[in-house]
Amino acid sequence: MSASFFALLDDIAVLARAAAASIDDVVAGAAKASAKAAGVVIDDAAVSPQYVQGLTPKRELPVVWKITRGSLMNKAIIIVGIMLLSTWAPWIFPWLLLAGGTYLAYEGAEKVWHWIKPSHSGTAGVEQVVERTTTDEKQMVSSAVRTDLVLSIEIMLISLANIEASSWGIRLATLIVVGLLMTVAVYGTVALLIRMDDVGFWLIKKPARWLQSIGTGLVKAMPWVFKGLTVVGALAMLWVGGHILLVNLGEVGFAAPYDLVSSIVGAVSAPGIVTWLLDSSLSAVFGLAWGAVVMLVLALFARLRFKQPAARAS
């Protein structure tokens, strides 16, 4: 009887150690995958605040909550889809990641182009969003959730590609943790950022001079914070997109770009942070070049498309 009892305790201890090891694997995998998806997350956090512009302060947080719920639903559907694909058609992931990397590189290159050659079309979209959100909150939430869907697909694909665990259950648990962390990080940051102005104005009304100074600083700093997020987001998208493209081009049989970058980085004898910066910079340059080519192809396609009716008319 006692032997059976101690044997049961031993089995429980073994299961507990296995569970603890699994939790460690999930946490470690989630941390690594989240770091790799940072570029998309930063860009998501930079883009999202525009969807609450034009709303009254009382509606800002409820709208952010609605978008957050939509984001969680997006990630739930995406996780189910990619886990099924990982079982039945894992060969498709390099191609999906190439498509995702192309999207990131294109978005990043487009932002760089707007920095080089500013145009009124870059601000028109925000003005349209402001007009839309003041008249139709449901339409604005739907637009934000659709944008989140694209970015969430990228986050989950990047995360899955960086999970080293072979267990299906560990990969699933890691994706769930990553999805929750990313959603909280993005929309928690958005909620905090959009209320910083209110905090600043509240501090300005305080009698203490030092509180007024802090409040004034917050109000003046927020436009620069959003500009900084946009810059960091664009650079991060180029770096992450370029790295995804380099790695997955090698996966589908075109390894020359990745081998070239690896040989350049390997030839540099420097501390780890320097080689990491070099590798990231080269990935960003490749992403910028790839995105520029995509922009050129799309521009040529658009020009040919708009010329066709004129040619037929003549």
Score class of each variant (00 low, 15 high):
Ser2Trp: 13
Gly29Glu: 01
Asn162Asp: 09
Val240Arg: 00
Ala299Pro: 02
Val141Arg: 05
Ser167Val: 08
Phe286Arg: 06
Val190His: 03
Ala289Tyr: 02
Ser71Glu: 11
Ser119Leu: 02
Ala191Gln: 07
Arg195Lys: 13
Lys32Gly: 13
His114Ser: 14
Ala33Trp: 00
Arg303Leu: 13
Val126Gln: 12
Ala38Phe: 14
Asp43His: 11
Val190Ile: 11
Met196Arg: 06
Leu104Thr: 05
Arg132Glu: 11
Trp202Tyr: 15
Pro57Cys: 02
Asp24Phe: 09
Tyr106Asp: 04
Ala255Met: 03
Leu151Met: 15
Tyr187Trp: 15
Pro257Ser: 08
Leu260Cys: 04
Lys75Ser: 07
Leu172Ala: 15
Leu85Ile: 10
Ser22Asn: 14
Val184Asn: 06
Ile273Arg: 05
Ile67Ala: 10
Tyr187Val: 03
Asp10Ile: 04
Ala284Phe: 05
Leu8His: 10
Ser4Val: 06
Arg303Thr: 07
Trp115Phe: 15
Lys138Arg: 14
Ile158Tyr: 02
Val199Ala: 13
Leu157His: 07
Ile92Asp: 10
Ser71Met: 11
Val186Thr: 09
Phe286Pro: 02
Leu96His: 05
Tyr187Lys: 09
Val261Ser: 04
Val52Glu: 00
Gly29Asp: 02
Leu157Asn: 06
Val232His: 03
Thr123Ser: 14
Gly188Ala: 13
Trp65Ser: 12
Leu85Trp: 04
Tyr187Ile: 04
Leu296Pro: 01
Thr189Asp: 01
Ala302Gln: 13
Pro49Ser: 13
Ile82Gly: 01
Met83Pro: 00
Glu154Gln: 12
Pro257Gln: 08
Val52Cys: 00
Gln139Met: 10
Glu164His: 11
Lys66Glu: 13
Val150Ser: 08
Val293Thr: 10
Gln53Pro: 00
Thr134Glu: 12
Ala21Val: 01
Ser86Gly: 12
Gly54Lys: 07
Val126Ser: 10
Met182Tyr: 01
Gly287Asn: 05
Ser34Ile: 05
Asn74Ala: 09
Trp168Asn: 11
Ser34Asn: 06
Ala13Cys: 05
Ile79Glu: 00
Thr135Ile: 08
Gln53Met: 10
Ile273Leu: 07
Leu98Thr: 04
Trp88Lys: 05
Ala236Asp: 03
Ile163Leu: 10
Gly287Leu: 06
Ala45Glu: 01
Asp279Ala: 08
Leu288Lys: 01
Glu127Gln: 14
Leu180Tyr: 06
Ala124Leu: 11
Ala46Asp: 09
Ser48Thr: 14
Met182Trp: 00
Ala256Val: 15
Trp113Gly: 03
Arg146Trp: 14
Thr135Trp: 08
Trp95Ala: 13
